[in-house]
C-alpha cells in the first residue's frame, strides 16, 4: 500500500484538520465530537446535516457552507459515524427551526442516524430524516438492504441546502428532499479497486482487463464483472439502466452528473460526459444542467458513476442558487 498518510489511525483526523485549515473562512471543527460545521453558524434556518463514512471526499465534509450543509459527520473510512456525532452536531447547529438529516441508505448509517434522531426527538428538538437510495444497480426487494445512496446525495444536499438557506420550514425542506430522491437515479462502475488504509490491501481484485458494473462507493461489488469496454459502451450500459429505471422520457429536462470515483482523470470523465450527452440526445432527454468531476468518491478507485435528476422549475432555481463550500461554489 502506498498512500500519502502519516499514521493509519489518524487518516480521518489529520485530513479533517487539513480541511478546516485550508477553508478556515468556511468551516470549523465541532469542539467535542467529530463533525465539520459552518463557520458562520446561521440560526434562522433549518439545519441540514449529513454524514457517513469517510473516503468519499469531497462528500460530505466538503459540502458544508453557505447554501448546502450546516454540519457533516464523518465516520472512519467507509464506516458510519456514531450517534453522538450526529446528536451533538445537531444540538450545536439547530437554531430552533429544526434539523433535517440526509442519510444514505446503508444499514449502519440508518441505525446510527436513527439513534441520534431518537435522542433529539426525546429532547423535543424537531428532527426529520430523508433516506437517499438512488442506486439502480441494487435490486430493491425484501431480500436486500435496499438501494444504496450514491450520486443523488450530492444533488440533494445542494438543492435542499439552497431551500433551507431561503428560510423554508422543516416540512418544506423534507418534502423537497424526498422529491429529489424520487426523481434521481444513478449507477456506477469501477476499473480498479480501492484500498482502505487500515486494511492495507485492495478491497477486491479486478483483473487487468476486467471491470465491475454497478459498483458501490465502498467497493461493494455490483451487478456483474466483465471485460473492459469502450467509454461509449460503458456509458450505454450505465445510462440505459438509469434511464429505464425511473423511467426518464423524451422531453424530460435533466441534470446530468458524471462523477469520478477518485482515481479517474477529468479528461476521461469528459469523454464519459460527451458520450452521455450523445446518448441522451438520441432519446430526446434534454440536459439543462450538469456536473462533471470527483464529488462522491471511493478513495483512489478508478471508475465513474452516472446520475440523472429529472428537474422541475423549483429544483432548477435552487440548483442555480449561490453556494459556497470547500467542494462546490458558484454564484457568490
Amino acid at each position: 500500500m502506498k498512500k500519502l498518510i502519516n499514521e493509519v489511525e489518524k487518516v480521518v483526523e489529520e485530513s479533517l484538520q487539513g480541511l478546516v485549515k485550508a477553508h478556515a473562512d468556511l468551516v470549523k471543527l465541532h469542539p467535542s465530537v467529530r463533525a465539520v460545521l459552518r463557520v458562520d453558524s446561521p440560526k434562522e434556518k433549518v439545519a441540514v446535516i449529513s454524514g457517513g463514512g469517510s473516503g468519499h471526499e469531497p462528500m460530505h465534509t466538503g459540502f458544508v457552507g453557505f447554501g448546502m450543509l450546516d454540519a457533516a459527520c464523518p465516520g472512519e473510512i467507509f464506516t458510519s459515524p456514531t450517534p453522538d456525532q450526529m446528536y451533538e452536531a445537531a444540538k450545536t447547529v439547530n437554531g430552533g427551526k429544526g434539523v433535517l438529516y440526509i442519510v444514505k441508505n446503508y444499514s449502519g448509517d440508518i441505525m446510527n442516524f436513527q439513534m441520534a434522531a431518537d435522542m433529539l426527538a426525546g429532547e423535543g428538538i424537531p428532527v426529520e430524516q430523508v433516506i437517499i437510495n438512488d442506486d439502480v444497480a441494487v435490486e430493491d426487494s425484501l431480500y436486500t438492504a435496499g438501494r444504496r445512496g450514491v450520486g443523488g446525495t450530492v444533488l440533494a444536499e445542494k438543492i435542499v441546502g439552497a431551500k433551507a438557506e431561503e428560510g423554508a420550514s422543516l416540512e418544506e425542506v423534507k418534502k423537497l428532499c424526498e422529491r429529489v430522491n424520487a426523481n434521481v437515479r444513478s449507477m456506477g462502475m469501477a476499473l480498479t479497486s480501492c484500498t482502505v488504509p487500515a486494511a492495507g490491501k485492495p478491497t477486491f481484485e479486478l483483473g487487468p482487463d476486467e471491470m465491475e458494473i454497478g459498483i458501490g462507493i465502498h467497493g461493494e461489488p455490483g451487478r456483474q464483472r466483465m471485460k473492459v469496454k469502450t467509454a461509449r459502451d460503458i456509458v450505454e450500459m450505465l445510462a440505459t439502466a438509469v434511464v429505464e429505471d425511473l423511467p426518464f422520457k423524451a422531453g424530460d429536462e435533466v441534470l446530468a452528473f458524471v462523477n469520478g470515483m477518485g482515481g479517474t482523470p477529468l479528461s476521461e470523465l469528459y469523454i464519459v460526459y460527451n458520450d452521455l450527452s450523445d446518448f441522451l440526445e438520441k432519446k430526446g432527454i434534454k440536459i439543462v444542467r450538469n456536473l462533471v468531476g470527483n464529488y462522491i468518491t471511493s478513495l483512489e478507485m478508478q471508475g465513474c458513476s452516472i446520475t440523472l435528476l429529472r428537474l422541475d422549475e423549483e429544483m432548477k432555481r435552487l440548483w442555480d442558487a449561490p453556494v459556497c463550500t470547500p467542494g462546490l461554489r458558484w454564484g457568490m
Binding site: 463514512g53 465516520g75 458510519s80 459515524p81 456514531t82 444499514s107 449502519g108 441505525m111 446510527n112 439513534m115
Partner: peptide, 12 residues
C-alpha cells in the same frame, strides 16, 4: 461501542 465502533456493528 455505540460511540466508537460506527458502521452497523456499533449500534448492534
Amino acid at each position: 461501542l455505540m460511540s466508537t465502533v460506527g458502521g452497523a456493528a456499533g449500534p448492534l
